[in-house]
Design a protein around this nucleic acid. Structure first.
Lengths: 221, 221
DNA sequence: CCGTGTGAAATCGTTCACAGCC
DNA sequence: GGCTGTGAACGATTTCACACGG
Protein backbone atom coordinates (compact mmCIF):
# COMPACT_ATOMS: atom_id res chain seq x y z
CA UNK A 1 0.00 0.00 0.00
CA UNK A 2 1.45 3.32 -1.01
CA UNK A 3 -0.20 6.10 0.94
CA UNK A 4 0.24 6.94 4.63
CA UNK A 5 -0.91 5.47 7.86
CA UNK A 6 -4.28 7.15 8.26
CA UNK A 7 -7.43 5.66 6.92
CA UNK A 8 -8.81 7.57 3.97
CA UNK A 9 -12.44 6.68 3.56
CA UNK A 10 -13.61 6.65 -0.02
CA UNK A 11 -17.24 7.65 0.01
CA UNK A 12 -19.12 7.79 -3.25
CA UNK A 13 -17.95 11.26 -4.24
CA UNK A 14 -21.45 11.84 -5.48
CA UNK A 15 -22.70 12.20 -1.94
CA UNK A 16 -20.09 14.66 -0.79
CA UNK A 17 -21.58 18.12 -1.17
CA UNK A 18 -19.73 20.39 -3.52
CA UNK A 19 -19.59 22.97 -0.74
CA UNK A 20 -17.50 20.59 1.35
CA UNK A 21 -14.86 20.40 -1.35
CA UNK A 22 -14.75 24.15 -1.52
CA UNK A 23 -14.18 24.39 2.19
CA UNK A 24 -11.51 21.70 2.04
CA UNK A 25 -9.55 24.00 -0.26
CA UNK A 26 -9.88 26.78 2.26
CA UNK A 27 -8.80 24.56 5.14
CA UNK A 28 -5.79 23.55 3.13
CA UNK A 29 -4.82 27.12 2.37
CA UNK A 30 -5.15 28.09 6.01
CA UNK A 31 -3.24 25.06 7.24
CA UNK A 32 -0.38 25.84 4.91
CA UNK A 33 -0.20 29.34 6.34
CA UNK A 34 -0.21 27.87 9.83
CA UNK A 35 2.57 25.46 9.01
CA UNK A 36 4.70 28.28 7.66
CA UNK A 37 4.19 30.16 10.90
CA UNK A 38 5.33 27.18 12.91
CA UNK A 39 2.05 25.89 14.35
CA UNK A 40 1.94 22.12 14.53
CA UNK A 41 -1.60 21.36 15.72
CA UNK A 42 -4.96 23.08 15.53
CA UNK A 43 -8.46 22.40 16.79
CA UNK A 44 -11.58 22.42 14.70
CA UNK A 45 -12.84 25.49 16.52
CA UNK A 46 -9.69 27.49 15.89
CA UNK A 47 -9.63 26.54 12.24
CA UNK A 48 -13.31 27.28 11.94
CA UNK A 49 -13.01 30.68 13.55
CA UNK A 50 -10.27 31.71 11.11
CA UNK A 51 -12.59 31.05 8.21
CA UNK A 52 -15.96 31.94 9.67
CA UNK A 53 -17.26 28.39 10.09
CA UNK A 54 -18.37 26.51 13.16
CA UNK A 55 -16.25 23.83 14.77
CA UNK A 56 -18.87 21.20 14.04
CA UNK A 57 -18.79 22.09 10.38
CA UNK A 58 -15.07 21.61 10.19
CA UNK A 59 -15.26 18.22 11.88
CA UNK A 60 -18.17 17.04 9.76
CA UNK A 61 -16.41 18.07 6.58
CA UNK A 62 -13.29 16.18 7.51
CA UNK A 63 -15.00 13.04 8.72
CA UNK A 64 -16.54 12.65 5.28
CA UNK A 65 -13.16 11.27 4.30
CA UNK A 66 -11.71 9.58 7.33
CA UNK A 67 -10.49 10.00 10.89
CA UNK A 68 -7.83 12.66 10.98
CA UNK A 69 -8.24 14.19 14.42
CA UNK A 70 -6.69 13.37 17.76
CA UNK A 71 -9.11 13.74 20.68
CA UNK A 72 -7.78 16.18 23.25
CA UNK A 73 -5.16 17.45 20.80
CA UNK A 74 -6.88 18.55 17.63
CA UNK A 75 -5.46 18.01 14.16
CA UNK A 76 -1.79 17.83 13.37
CA UNK A 77 -1.27 20.41 10.65
CA UNK A 78 1.20 18.48 8.60
CA UNK A 79 -0.86 15.32 8.70
CA UNK A 80 -4.03 17.14 7.77
CA UNK A 81 -2.39 18.99 4.91
CA UNK A 82 -1.24 15.67 3.49
CA UNK A 83 -4.69 14.17 3.91
CA UNK A 84 -6.52 17.06 2.26
CA UNK A 85 -4.09 17.14 -0.60
CA UNK A 86 -4.70 13.46 -1.15
CA UNK A 87 -8.46 14.03 -1.04
CA UNK A 88 -8.34 16.94 -3.47
CA UNK A 89 -5.99 15.05 -5.74
CA UNK A 90 -3.30 17.69 -5.47
CA UNK A 91 -0.71 15.29 -4.12
CA UNK A 92 0.14 14.62 -7.73
CA UNK A 93 1.02 17.08 -10.48
CA UNK A 94 -1.61 18.05 -13.03
CA UNK A 95 -0.75 19.19 -16.51
CA UNK A 96 -2.69 22.17 -17.77
CA UNK A 97 -3.03 23.92 -21.11
CA UNK A 98 -4.13 27.52 -21.39
CA UNK A 99 -6.27 28.66 -24.30
CA UNK A 100 -6.26 32.31 -25.28
CA UNK A 101 -3.17 34.39 -24.64
CA UNK A 102 -4.84 37.75 -24.05
CA UNK A 103 -4.44 39.91 -20.98
CA UNK A 104 -5.96 37.41 -18.62
CA UNK A 105 -4.26 34.45 -20.25
CA UNK A 106 -0.86 36.05 -19.92
CA UNK A 107 -1.53 36.88 -16.30
CA UNK A 108 -2.40 33.27 -15.56
CA UNK A 109 0.70 32.02 -17.36
CA UNK A 110 2.74 34.07 -14.93
CA UNK A 111 0.80 33.19 -11.80
CA UNK A 112 3.03 31.39 -9.30
CA UNK A 113 0.14 30.09 -7.21
CA UNK A 114 -0.68 27.30 -9.65
CA UNK A 115 2.58 25.41 -9.66
CA UNK A 116 2.79 25.81 -5.89
CA UNK A 117 -0.44 23.82 -5.68
CA UNK A 118 0.59 21.19 -8.19
CA UNK A 119 -0.89 22.62 -11.36
CA UNK A 120 1.67 22.97 -14.09
CA UNK A 121 0.80 24.95 -17.17
CA UNK A 122 2.80 23.23 -19.86
CA UNK A 123 1.40 24.73 -23.04
CA UNK A 124 -0.60 27.67 -24.31
CA UNK A 125 -2.62 28.14 -27.49
CA UNK A 126 -3.74 31.16 -29.40
CA UNK A 127 -5.53 31.62 -32.66
CA UNK A 128 -3.52 34.66 -33.57
CA UNK A 129 -0.57 33.38 -35.65
CA UNK A 130 1.55 36.28 -34.47
CA UNK A 131 1.35 35.03 -30.90
CA UNK A 132 1.99 31.41 -31.76
CA UNK A 133 5.67 30.55 -31.61
CA UNK A 134 6.36 32.91 -28.74
CA UNK A 135 7.40 31.73 -25.30
CA UNK A 136 5.80 33.48 -22.32
CA UNK A 137 7.05 32.86 -18.80
CA UNK A 138 8.76 29.77 -20.10
CA UNK A 139 5.62 28.39 -21.69
CA UNK A 140 5.42 27.82 -25.42
CA UNK A 141 2.46 29.32 -27.30
CA UNK A 142 1.16 27.05 -30.05
CA UNK A 143 -1.21 27.71 -32.91
CA UNK A 144 -4.64 26.17 -32.45
CA UNK A 145 -4.14 23.62 -35.18
CA UNK A 146 -1.41 21.91 -33.21
CA UNK A 147 -3.85 21.30 -30.40
CA UNK A 148 -4.38 17.55 -30.82
CA UNK A 149 -0.73 16.85 -31.22
CA UNK A 150 0.40 18.91 -28.22
CA UNK A 151 -2.34 17.70 -25.87
CA UNK A 152 -1.52 14.10 -26.71
CA UNK A 153 2.27 14.40 -26.59
CA UNK A 154 2.37 16.30 -23.35
CA UNK A 155 -0.44 14.26 -21.82
CA UNK A 156 -2.37 17.38 -20.89
CA UNK A 157 -5.26 16.76 -18.53
CA UNK A 158 -6.84 20.12 -17.82
CA UNK A 159 -7.75 23.21 -19.84
CA UNK A 160 -8.04 26.81 -18.74
CA UNK A 161 -10.09 28.83 -21.18
CA UNK A 162 -9.44 32.55 -21.51
CA UNK A 163 -10.58 33.10 -25.08
CA UNK A 164 -13.42 35.50 -25.98
CA UNK A 165 -16.91 34.29 -25.13
CA UNK A 166 -17.84 33.57 -28.72
CA UNK A 167 -14.98 31.12 -29.15
CA UNK A 168 -15.11 29.37 -25.78
CA UNK A 169 -17.50 26.54 -26.61
CA UNK A 170 -15.60 25.57 -29.72
CA UNK A 171 -12.30 25.60 -27.89
CA UNK A 172 -13.73 23.48 -25.09
CA UNK A 173 -15.14 20.94 -27.54
CA UNK A 174 -11.84 20.67 -29.35
CA UNK A 175 -9.78 20.35 -26.20
CA UNK A 176 -12.08 17.68 -24.85
CA UNK A 177 -11.97 15.75 -28.09
CA UNK A 178 -8.18 15.85 -27.78
CA UNK A 179 -8.31 14.25 -24.35
CA UNK A 180 -8.67 16.96 -21.75
CA UNK A 181 -10.87 15.83 -18.84
CA UNK A 182 -11.32 19.00 -16.80
CA UNK A 183 -12.05 22.57 -17.81
CA UNK A 184 -11.86 25.90 -16.01
CA UNK A 185 -13.75 28.46 -18.03
CA UNK A 186 -13.08 32.18 -17.59
CA UNK A 187 -15.16 33.25 -20.57
CA UNK A 188 -18.51 34.78 -19.65
CA UNK A 189 -20.65 32.08 -21.25
CA UNK A 190 -22.26 28.88 -20.13
CA UNK A 191 -20.38 25.95 -21.58
CA UNK A 192 -21.90 22.58 -22.30
CA UNK A 193 -19.66 19.57 -21.81
CA UNK A 194 -20.22 15.82 -21.67
CA UNK A 195 -21.12 14.82 -18.15
CA UNK A 196 -17.96 12.83 -17.58
CA UNK A 197 -15.96 16.05 -18.00
CA UNK A 198 -15.43 18.29 -14.96
CA UNK A 199 -16.20 21.94 -15.42
CA UNK A 200 -16.00 25.05 -13.30
CA UNK A 201 -16.79 28.52 -14.50
CA UNK A 202 -15.23 31.68 -13.13
CA UNK A 203 -16.91 34.85 -14.30
CA UNK A 204 -15.20 37.91 -12.95
CA UNK A 205 -18.10 40.23 -13.65
CA UNK A 206 -20.42 37.85 -11.84
CA UNK A 207 -18.26 38.06 -8.75
CA UNK A 208 -18.58 41.82 -8.77
CA UNK A 209 -22.33 41.50 -9.09
CA UNK A 210 -22.40 39.57 -5.83
CA UNK A 211 -20.70 42.49 -4.16
CA UNK A 212 -22.92 45.01 -5.85
CA UNK A 213 -26.01 43.22 -4.61
CA UNK A 214 -24.82 42.96 -1.10
CA UNK A 215 -23.66 46.56 -0.94
CA UNK A 216 -26.89 47.82 -2.48
CA UNK A 217 -28.85 45.86 0.12
CA UNK A 218 -26.83 46.29 3.25
CA UNK A 219 -29.52 47.70 5.45
CA UNK A 220 -29.98 44.49 7.35
CA UNK A 221 -29.82 43.98 11.11
CA UNK B 1 -41.47 57.85 -11.13
CA UNK B 2 -38.21 56.59 -12.48
CA UNK B 3 -38.24 52.83 -12.31
CA UNK B 4 -40.46 50.55 -14.33
CA UNK B 5 -43.98 49.40 -14.05
CA UNK B 6 -43.38 46.07 -12.35
CA UNK B 7 -43.46 45.59 -8.64
CA UNK B 8 -40.06 44.92 -7.12
CA UNK B 9 -40.52 43.20 -3.80
CA UNK B 10 -37.90 44.06 -1.23
CA UNK B 11 -37.45 41.05 0.99
CA UNK B 12 -34.99 41.22 3.84
CA UNK B 13 -31.93 40.40 1.79
CA UNK B 14 -30.79 38.29 4.71
CA UNK B 15 -33.30 35.61 3.81
CA UNK B 16 -32.43 35.38 0.14
CA UNK B 17 -29.95 32.53 -0.21
CA UNK B 18 -26.60 33.56 -1.57
CA UNK B 19 -26.98 30.88 -4.22
CA UNK B 20 -30.00 32.70 -5.61
CA UNK B 21 -27.96 35.83 -6.21
CA UNK B 22 -25.36 33.79 -8.00
CA UNK B 23 -27.97 32.30 -10.27
CA UNK B 24 -29.47 35.72 -10.91
CA UNK B 25 -26.14 36.75 -12.39
CA UNK B 26 -26.22 33.73 -14.64
CA UNK B 27 -29.80 34.41 -15.72
CA UNK B 28 -28.78 37.95 -16.55
CA UNK B 29 -25.81 36.85 -18.61
CA UNK B 30 -27.93 34.37 -20.52
CA UNK B 31 -30.73 36.85 -21.10
CA UNK B 32 -28.32 39.37 -22.50
CA UNK B 33 -27.08 36.77 -24.97
CA UNK B 34 -30.68 36.01 -25.90
CA UNK B 35 -31.48 39.66 -26.44
CA UNK B 36 -28.52 40.05 -28.75
CA UNK B 37 -29.74 37.11 -30.77
CA UNK B 38 -33.15 38.68 -31.13
CA UNK B 39 -35.25 36.60 -28.76
CA UNK B 40 -37.87 38.64 -26.97
CA UNK B 41 -39.47 36.19 -24.54
CA UNK B 42 -38.37 33.03 -22.75
CA UNK B 43 -39.98 30.52 -20.41
CA UNK B 44 -38.56 29.40 -17.10
CA UNK B 45 -38.01 25.93 -18.49
CA UNK B 46 -36.03 27.14 -21.50
CA UNK B 47 -33.89 29.42 -19.37
CA UNK B 48 -33.39 26.67 -16.84
CA UNK B 49 -32.36 24.15 -19.44
CA UNK B 50 -29.69 26.47 -20.81
CA UNK B 51 -28.07 26.65 -17.39
CA UNK B 52 -28.79 23.22 -16.02
CA UNK B 53 -31.50 24.25 -13.57
CA UNK B 54 -35.11 23.19 -13.27
CA UNK B 55 -37.95 25.44 -14.34
CA UNK B 56 -39.27 25.58 -10.79
CA UNK B 57 -35.91 26.79 -9.57
CA UNK B 58 -35.88 29.65 -12.03
CA UNK B 59 -39.36 30.75 -11.07
CA UNK B 60 -38.70 30.47 -7.33
CA UNK B 61 -35.54 32.50 -7.65
CA UNK B 62 -37.30 35.25 -9.51
CA UNK B 63 -40.36 35.40 -7.32
CA UNK B 64 -38.09 36.17 -4.37
CA UNK B 65 -38.07 39.69 -5.77
CA UNK B 66 -41.39 40.26 -7.48
CA UNK B 67 -43.72 39.18 -10.24
CA UNK B 68 -41.91 39.36 -13.53
CA UNK B 69 -43.51 36.61 -15.57
CA UNK B 70 -46.50 36.55 -17.89
CA UNK B 71 -48.61 33.39 -17.62
CA UNK B 72 -48.92 31.68 -20.95
CA UNK B 73 -46.07 33.77 -22.38
CA UNK B 74 -43.02 33.45 -20.14
CA UNK B 75 -40.69 36.30 -19.31
CA UNK B 76 -40.00 39.22 -21.61
CA UNK B 77 -36.25 39.30 -21.95
CA UNK B 78 -35.83 43.02 -21.91
CA UNK B 79 -38.08 43.46 -18.94
CA UNK B 80 -36.37 40.71 -16.99
CA UNK B 81 -32.93 42.06 -17.76
CA UNK B 82 -33.96 45.42 -16.37
CA UNK B 83 -35.45 43.80 -13.29
CA UNK B 84 -32.42 41.67 -12.53
CA UNK B 85 -30.08 44.57 -13.04
CA UNK B 86 -32.11 46.55 -10.57
CA UNK B 87 -32.03 43.68 -8.10
CA UNK B 88 -28.30 43.19 -8.41
CA UNK B 89 -27.71 46.91 -8.22
CA UNK B 90 -26.03 47.03 -11.62
CA UNK B 91 -28.50 49.52 -13.03
CA UNK B 92 -26.19 52.19 -11.68
CA UNK B 93 -22.46 52.61 -12.23
CA UNK B 94 -20.06 51.49 -9.53
CA UNK B 95 -16.65 53.02 -9.08
CA UNK B 96 -13.84 50.59 -8.44
CA UNK B 97 -10.22 50.90 -7.44
CA UNK B 98 -7.69 48.20 -8.18
CA UNK B 99 -4.86 47.48 -5.76
CA UNK B 100 -1.73 45.81 -7.02
CA UNK B 101 -0.67 46.32 -10.61
CA UNK B 102 1.00 42.97 -11.23
CA UNK B 103 0.15 40.52 -13.96
CA UNK B 104 -3.35 39.88 -12.76
CA UNK B 105 -3.98 43.51 -11.89
CA UNK B 106 -2.99 44.67 -15.34
CA UNK B 107 -5.20 42.04 -16.91
CA UNK B 108 -8.17 43.23 -14.90
CA UNK B 109 -7.48 46.86 -15.80
CA UNK B 110 -7.85 45.88 -19.43
CA UNK B 111 -10.86 43.64 -19.02
CA UNK B 112 -13.80 45.00 -21.00
CA UNK B 113 -16.37 42.88 -19.23
CA UNK B 114 -16.44 45.10 -16.17
CA UNK B 115 -17.51 48.37 -17.70
CA UNK B 116 -20.07 46.52 -19.81
CA UNK B 117 -21.69 45.43 -16.55
CA UNK B 118 -21.50 48.85 -14.91
CA UNK B 119 -18.26 48.51 -12.99
CA UNK B 120 -15.84 51.27 -13.80
CA UNK B 121 -12.27 50.98 -12.63
CA UNK B 122 -11.29 54.59 -12.08
CA UNK B 123 -7.98 54.27 -10.25
CA UNK B 124 -5.21 51.81 -9.54
CA UNK B 125 -2.64 51.68 -6.77
CA UNK B 126 0.75 50.08 -6.44
CA UNK B 127 3.39 50.16 -3.78
CA UNK B 128 6.20 50.13 -6.30
CA UNK B 129 7.07 53.79 -6.93
CA UNK B 130 8.20 52.94 -10.45
CA UNK B 131 4.69 51.87 -11.36
CA UNK B 132 2.98 54.83 -9.74
CA UNK B 133 2.49 57.68 -12.17
CA UNK B 134 1.94 55.42 -15.14
CA UNK B 135 -1.36 55.18 -16.97
CA UNK B 136 -2.53 51.71 -17.99
CA UNK B 137 -5.50 51.23 -20.27
CA UNK B 138 -6.47 54.78 -19.51
CA UNK B 139 -6.35 54.26 -15.76
CA UNK B 140 -3.95 56.21 -13.59
CA UNK B 141 -1.72 54.26 -11.21
CA UNK B 142 -1.23 56.03 -7.88
CA UNK B 143 1.23 55.40 -5.07
CA UNK B 144 -0.32 53.83 -2.01
CA UNK B 145 0.06 56.93 0.10
CA UNK B 146 -2.39 58.82 -2.06
CA UNK B 147 -5.04 56.24 -1.25
CA UNK B 148 -7.21 58.29 1.10
CA UNK B 149 -7.18 61.31 -1.12
CA UNK B 150 -8.01 59.44 -4.34
CA UNK B 151 -10.71 57.24 -2.81
CA UNK B 152 -12.41 60.28 -1.35
CA UNK B 153 -12.10 62.55 -4.38
CA UNK B 154 -13.26 59.98 -6.88
CA UNK B 155 -15.91 58.61 -4.53
CA UNK B 156 -14.65 55.08 -4.97
CA UNK B 157 -16.99 52.43 -3.62
CA UNK B 158 -15.38 49.08 -4.34
CA UNK B 159 -11.89 47.61 -4.18
CA UNK B 160 -10.36 44.79 -6.18
CA UNK B 161 -7.31 43.39 -4.44
CA UNK B 162 -4.57 41.80 -6.53
CA UNK B 163 -1.59 42.38 -4.25
CA UNK B 164 0.50 39.52 -2.83
CA UNK B 165 -1.13 37.53 -0.06
CA UNK B 166 1.04 39.00 2.67
CA UNK B 167 -0.10 42.55 1.87
CA UNK B 168 -3.77 41.91 1.23
CA UNK B 169 -5.16 42.37 4.73
CA UNK B 170 -3.37 45.65 5.22
CA UNK B 171 -4.53 46.96 1.86
CA UNK B 172 -8.11 45.96 2.62
CA UNK B 173 -8.01 47.65 6.02
CA UNK B 174 -6.67 50.83 4.53
CA UNK B 175 -9.13 50.91 1.65
CA UNK B 176 -12.02 50.33 4.01
CA UNK B 177 -10.85 53.05 6.34
CA UNK B 178 -10.81 55.35 3.32
CA UNK B 179 -14.45 54.61 2.56
CA UNK B 180 -14.63 51.55 0.35
CA UNK B 181 -17.68 49.40 1.16
CA UNK B 182 -17.14 46.28 -0.95
CA UNK B 183 -14.06 44.19 -1.61
CA UNK B 184 -13.21 41.53 -4.17
CA UNK B 185 -10.11 39.71 -3.00
CA UNK B 186 -7.96 37.78 -5.46
CA UNK B 187 -5.14 37.16 -3.02
CA UNK B 188 -5.00 33.62 -1.65
CA UNK B 189 -5.70 34.54 1.97
CA UNK B 190 -8.76 34.83 4.13
CA UNK B 191 -9.48 38.47 4.79
CA UNK B 192 -11.25 39.78 7.86
CA UNK B 193 -13.47 42.81 7.35
CA UNK B 194 -16.08 44.57 9.47
CA UNK B 195 -19.43 42.90 8.97
CA UNK B 196 -20.98 45.90 7.27
CA UNK B 197 -18.43 45.54 4.46
CA UNK B 198 -19.19 43.13 1.62
CA UNK B 199 -16.49 40.70 0.68
CA UNK B 200 -16.02 38.01 -1.93
CA UNK B 201 -12.88 36.02 -2.40
CA UNK B 202 -11.74 34.55 -5.70
CA UNK B 203 -8.87 32.12 -5.38
CA UNK B 204 -7.77 30.82 -8.73
CA UNK B 205 -5.86 27.86 -7.31
CA UNK B 206 -8.91 26.88 -5.30
CA UNK B 207 -10.98 26.72 -8.46
CA UNK B 208 -8.48 24.34 -9.98
CA UNK B 209 -8.64 22.17 -6.86
CA UNK B 210 -12.36 21.71 -7.42
CA UNK B 211 -11.60 20.34 -10.85
CA UNK B 212 -8.78 18.21 -9.58
CA UNK B 213 -11.04 16.62 -7.00
CA UNK B 214 -13.78 15.90 -9.41
CA UNK B 215 -11.46 14.50 -12.06
CA UNK B 216 -9.65 12.37 -9.51
CA UNK B 217 -12.97 10.98 -8.34
CA UNK B 218 -14.92 10.58 -11.50
CA UNK B 219 -15.81 6.96 -11.14
CA UNK B 220 -19.30 7.63 -9.90
CA UNK B 221 -22.78 6.53 -10.90
C1' DC C 1 -10.41 19.22 31.14
C1' DC C 2 -10.04 19.72 26.06
C1' DG C 3 -11.24 18.08 21.78
C1' DT C 4 -12.95 14.60 18.24
C1' DG C 5 -16.67 11.87 15.98
C1' DT C 6 -21.46 11.31 15.35
C1' DG C 7 -26.45 10.38 15.62
C1' DA C 8 -30.47 13.28 16.14
C1' DA C 9 -32.75 17.70 15.54
C1' DA C 10 -33.16 21.85 13.20
C1' DT C 11 -32.56 24.60 9.37
C1' DC C 12 -32.22 25.63 4.71
C1' DG C 13 -32.90 25.01 -0.24
C1' DT C 14 -35.06 22.45 -4.08
C1' DT C 15 -38.61 20.06 -6.40
C1' DC C 16 -43.46 18.80 -6.91
C1' DA C 17 -47.91 19.56 -8.17
C1' DC C 18 -51.57 22.23 -8.96
C1' DA C 19 -54.60 26.64 -9.01
C1' DG C 20 -55.08 30.50 -11.84
C1' DC C 21 -54.29 33.26 -16.01
C1' DC C 22 -53.43 34.24 -21.03
C1' DG D 1 -52.43 24.55 -24.58
C1' DG D 2 -48.67 26.78 -22.39
C1' DC D 3 -46.85 29.08 -18.59
C1' DT D 4 -46.39 31.50 -14.05
C1' DG D 5 -46.64 31.71 -8.87
C1' DT D 6 -46.78 29.14 -4.73
C1' DG D 7 -47.82 26.22 -0.63
C1' DA D 8 -46.57 21.74 0.70
C1' DA D 9 -43.41 17.74 0.41
C1' DC D 10 -39.04 16.46 0.08
C1' DG D 11 -34.10 16.24 0.34
C1' DA D 12 -29.81 18.10 1.71
C1' DT D 13 -26.85 20.52 4.80
C1' DT D 14 -25.80 22.60 9.12
C1' DT D 15 -25.98 22.80 14.02
C1' DC D 16 -26.63 20.66 18.47
C1' DA D 17 -25.44 17.86 22.14
C1' DC D 18 -23.26 14.28 24.06
C1' DA D 19 -20.41 9.74 24.33
C1' DC D 20 -15.84 8.66 24.24
C1' DG D 21 -10.68 9.14 24.05
C1' DG D 22 -6.05 11.42 25.52
Amino acid sequence: MSTGKHKLAQPDPGDVPKAVINRLSLYLRELQHLLRSGKTTISSSQLGRMLGFTDAQVRKDLTCFGHFGHPGIGYRCEELVAAIRRILGTDRVWTVALFGVGNLGRALLGYKGFSAKGFQIVAAFDEDPRKAGATIDGIRVHPMDRLDEVIANQRIQLAMITVPAAAAQHVADTAIKAGVVGVVNFAPVTLTVPQEISLVGVDLATELEQISFSVANREKS
